[in-house]
Design a protein around this nucleic acid. Sequence first.
RNA 1: GCGUGAGUAGCCGAGCGGGUCAAAGGCGCAGGAUUUAGGGUCCUGUCUCGUAGGGGUUCGCAGGUUCAAAUCCUGCCUCACGCACCA
Length: 934
Amino acid sequence: MMRGLIVGDLELRLSEADVEEEWKTAFHSDPSEKEKCYINVAYPYPSGAMHVGHGRTYIVPDVIARFWRMRGRQVLYPMAFHVTGSPVIGISKRIARGDAKTLSLYRDLYKVPSDVIDRFSDPLAIVDHFSNEYQRVMSRLGLSIDWRRRFTTILPQYSKFIEWQYSHLNGQGRVVRGEHPVKYCPQCDNPVGDHDLLEGDKAEIVRFIFVNFEMDGYIIPCATLRPETIYGVTNLWVNPDVRYVKADVDGIAWLLSREAAEKLALQKHTVAITGEVDGSELIGRTVSHPLCGSVRILPAGFVDPDMGSGIVMSVPAHAPFDYIALLDLQKKGEYTDIEPVSLIKVDGYGEIPAKEAVIRHGIVDQHDPKMDEVTQEVYSAEFSRGKLLARCREHEGKPVRVAREDVGAVMEAEYGSIWFYDFDQQPVICRCGSRAYVRILDDQWFLTYSDLEWKQQVHDQIEKIALVPPEVRAEFDRTVDWLKDWACTRRVGLGTRVPWDPKWLFEPLSDSTVYMAYYTIAHRISGIPAESLTPEVFDYIFLGRGNPVNVDRTTLDALRSEFLYWYPYNYRFSAKDLISNHLTFQLFHHRAIFPDELQPKGMVVFGMGLLDGAKMSSSKGNVFLLEDAAEEFGADTVRMFLVGSAEPWQDFDWRNELVSSVRKQIERFIGYIAESGGVTGTTDVDAWLSSRLQRRIAKMTESLELFQTRQALQEAYFGIESDLKWYRRRLPAGSPGGAVLGEVSDAWVRLLAPVIPFTCESLWREMGHDGLVSFAEWPAPDQTRINPEIELAEELIVRTIEDIESIIKIIQVTPGQLTILLAPEWKYEVFRRVAAAEDKRSVTKELMKDDSMRKRGKEAANTISQVIKLIHSLPPQLVEDISSLAPDEYEIFTHAVTFIEKEFSVKVKVLHAEASGHAKAGMALPFKPAIVIE
RNA sequence: GCGUGAGUAGCCGAGCGGGUCAAAGGCGCAGGAUUUAGGGUCCUGUCUCGUAGGGGUUCGCAGGUUCAAAUCCUGCCUCACGCACCA
């Protein structure tokens, strides 16, 4: 009796534990005679518990790994933990501080015991705890990982590996020093990433230019994105209620808002405040700029000292805000001599676009909520279609987008303009609660992804690499084009120090680019002291170069040979959000470090995970923990759902009701296998079932080769199940079936083993096999068992039964007798000739040229048109089979009479239509007999 | 806003080098069967009309190409992912 037949919760879990124990070391993978298959996944950052979304990321590669292992490959599926970076440092601080939200996340959602949480004030305790959890849960889910190779990215040996990589990149001139604006918290004295922000995580850093006016020996800067509009400036705006400061900026006397002066100090300028001045004192004064001459300063309450320099240049012809503000003053009879000065011609507008737009939208004053929209409208019209007018001198006729660059460059070179960075929205608040600013870091290290030659090499690589799905190729190419230099170092966090500048650490994405190579030797190198692992050692292992002496040669040769066995990797798996950074970075780095023959071979990109239709997100609490899922449904159910509900590259949606039905499917599968045990003998439908099985095997194999896990499961689960259902329906009453069922079970258990390995492992054992199904031979379709005639005959019966059912349903009578009238041979001839005809429209004429057809007259013409219609409604393969195999319908139906009689509980007669003399006889067509129900 | 991709029946999803598509499969729902103890299993139906296996209208919206379009082209709308120093 088979154990596990009745799948109680407890029993299921017990058997999972048994199998897990057996697998403990089964997937340790060493170089062998066999062809290798090396797959890997982006390693996790263990700062929290795994949810079902993570589950799929690691289960899909596992299914693929198991598949190729059964196909006889030496498969390597390794795993490590990425602990580089700063998030856990923030987490540990928040936990130490007793932050309620963080504590609740870890205690309630991740279910970390309180004594463990107590240790979380140490960031290393967090990653330690969760990497062990990850391993435990991954094992529980049956991932066939070689755990000997596990490492973390702050292991001293790994750091040495990073140093080696960067010594090459640096030597190639690919690491350069540069300056870079970042979001920065003065309180924390550190750059802040978007996830470090309490508010303003969508804020972007915008680069303004200061247009420097002059007044009494002071520079009066105005921040703008549109330097070309200098030719249309009619005045400046100053807020009379704001106290401005005089400041010494890089040795020159400036006048600007206090906020602006402080911001400048963070942007590589020396700023010393020397005095203050009321905005009101500035009103009415005259300033000048070489490109627009002298203009006056006017009062404006809307000027924000925290925006730009706190002083604004006014271009009323093209800026609706300026226009309406000027108008407001003039309504009071002030400054009536100022006229808007037009400098841009744009189709769809007259001389003063700002004025027209304001009038068109019925704006009455500056406080109208539509002002932003109007401004946007004018700006984008001018930017996309505008051309500069004659008053812009040498820039006349230039499109706005060009003139903007040109005028800016001239101002910077000749008129003392500098760049000024600020956020496009406020406020931007650090998690510590204080305000964040833009700061320019000037000793930052960059990877030169902007290098055109390097980009080209990566483009060439992308052309050669296998990408799943292929549509992502365009996105990779775009990313390569779009990448600029990447700031690859940080001041804080865990990680490897920059060897030549130890105050910096390599940033997390930058230390995770070629670690797939490290897996190949991770278990062998962990015993070697880090001090011995000089760059020369890695050169020897990975590049076969040099003559290192601090590690003995036998060891080195072993490492080198293992690396060469596995590398290059065959497939890397990752979610699609990493295309624009990690997945592309690793191509860059492989290209820079490794020779042609060791470049990546392929990548598989995953879709995202949803939970009940909403995006999964730990921070929002919208997650379902993987372990809870395994507990509730069983590991195999979780696996089958995650790989079967959508193809890997599609988004999937975890819904408990759907998962439950997957569980029933597995139970049904176990039931089928159990019932087929020990069945002997043969039946009439065995050959059919066997033939179908071969096709299912071929289809599933093909699908898995293409990573189509969902398609594979459709064939291997639902396909085989539906064949079995039909098979059983076809059996004579009381028959348990034939020995073919054993053949099906044997193949079926192996086909599903990659997806539901726990179940299949125990079934395999119950079936009396030695060894693990995980290493059993993958079924191969047996061509000799494929029998198209039998499948065609069965198809005819299926279709006829469907016809009978639908007729019965419509006429709603209880049939007393059923007669099947078969089409005569000449109609088959028509069928074959129509099927073979290129042009179905002229085939009637063609056929009617025949004497044999003509003498049948109208009947022949009708038949031809019915056959044309019939052929259009049948699958092409079927049409071909009907033509070429010429099924003997009489033989087929007389054999199936008992079955049809059983189906409809009615007497069945099978007759040749033309001999029957029946009124419906004319309806009979090839493969579609006429049916008479009385 | 920019880049990449997607929009198919109650839901999820096949199909997308044009005819074979009223459109696979699953889920859900409905009816029936079953010596069915419990949500199990099997069969049937599930856009619409129809007392003979058929007809009609559908595949984000609006146009276009074609004898023929879910499938090709154009425009629009909506959604997802990415837009950088961050895992």
